[in-house]
Design a protein around this nucleic acid. Structure first.
Lengths: 158, 158
DNA sequence: AAAAAATAATTGTTGACACAATTAAATGGG
DNA sequence: CCCATTTAATTGTGTCAACAATTATTTTTT
C-alpha cells in the first residue's frame, strides 16, 4: 500500500502533522481491524463479543476473590473499547451458549457472567488464527519497531 | 492514563508483542476517536459523514477535470474507512441540505455528489474545533514523536 | 426506621452499519 | 446489432451500537 499522502489523493498536504498522525492512526486501525472482523464473523462473533469472551476466560483461569464469574460493570471496565450496551451483548453470548449469567447473592443488583465450556472451546479454536493474524498485521514492522510503536501509542494515550 | 498493562487489569502479560501492539492501537484509536465522535454528533454528523464532506470540499476547491462534483465510487475510494453503504450516507447529507446529487450526463449510471453552501459553512464552523482536537489528542507526543509515529504507522500498513 | 441518593443492570427506541440481491446503464464480443 | 458481461448505484434486510429512561437493590442521610 502506498503512503497516506498518495492514498487519499489529496492534492494539497495535511493541515498539520497531528492531523496526519490522526488520519494515519485511523487508516492503520481500519486496515488491521478488517481481517479480525472477518475471522470473528465466521464464528458468529464481533470484536466486542470476542473481547468479552477473552475477559471472561481470563477471569476463569485466574479467579478473583474466589469468583470465576465477573460482574457486568467489571467487564465494561476491562474492555478495549467502551460498550454502552453490555446487557444485550451478553444476551447474544448467552443465546449462543457461550456464556451464562447468575445473580450474585451478596448483592442482588449485580449479575455475574461466566464463560461456558462451549465458550472456552470456541476461544481455543480461535487462538491459533488470532495469534497468526496479530503477527500478520504487524508483519511490516521489525520487533524493535513494534516495541517502539507500543511506546509511542502508550505515551500518546494520555 | 496508566500504561496498557495495568489498564486492562490482566494479571499475566500479553501473548506477544504484536498482540500488545494491536491492543494498544485499538485502545489509542478508541480514546482518540471519542472526542471527535462527540464533536461531530453535536452537529448531526458521524465520523464517516464528516469524512465525506471533507472529501467533497476538497474536490470543490480543487475540481478534477472541470468537475466539482464527485462520483460515489470515487468518494468511497478516498474515505478513511471503508463504507459499504454510501448511498444512504449521502441520503442523510442530502436530507440535511449539506450535499446534493446530480446524475452525470456522460454516463447515466454515475451519480455525482457536490457539497452545498450549507455543507461548506458547517465544515468551516468545524475547522477550528477539529484542528484543536487534532492537537489535543496528540498532545502527549512531541513533534518528533508525532512524525516518528507517522512513519511507523505508514510502514505497518502494508 | 423511613426517605433520599446512589448503584447495577435492563429496556425502549432510534440510527447507523454490513451484506446480499437488484436495477439501470454502458461496454464488448460474436 | 444483439446478447452477455461489466460497472455504478440503489434497495432490502438483519444486526449492532448509542443514548435516555426505567427498574431493582443497596447505601446513606436525617
Amino acid at each position: 500500500m502506498p503512503a497516506l499522502k498518495t492514498d487519499i489523493k489529496k492534492k494539497h498536504g495535511f493541515d498539520s502533522p497531528e492531523q496526519e498522525a490522526w488520519l494515519n492512526l485511523a487508516r492503520t486501525h481500519a486496515a488491521m481491524t478488517g481481517p479480525f472482523v472477518t475471522l470473528f464473523k465466521q464464528h458468529g462473533l464481533t470484536p466486542a463479543s470476542y473481547n468479552v469472551l477473552r475477559i471472561l476466560r481470563g477471569v476463569r483461569q485466574y479467579p478473583e476473590r474466589g469468583h470465576e464469574a465477573l460482574p457486568c460493570a467489571e467487564i465494561v471496565e476491562r474492555m478495549v473499547t467502551r460498550v454502552p450496551d453490555l446487557t444485550r451483548l451478553i444476551d447474544r453470548l448467552v443465546e449462543k451458549g457461550l456464556a451464562e449469567r447468575k445473580r450474585a447473592e451478596e448483592d442482588r443488583r449485580v449479575v455475574r457472567v461466566r464463560i461456558t465450556r462451549r465458550g472456552s472451546s470456541l476461544l481455543k479454536k480461535l487462538d491459533g488464527p488470532v495469534a497468526q493474524l496479530h503477527r500478520r498485521v504487524m508483519s511490516g514492522l521489525s520487533v524493535a519497531e513494534v516495541s517502539h510503536l507500543n511506546r509511542l501509542l502508550e505515551k500518546a494515550r494520555i
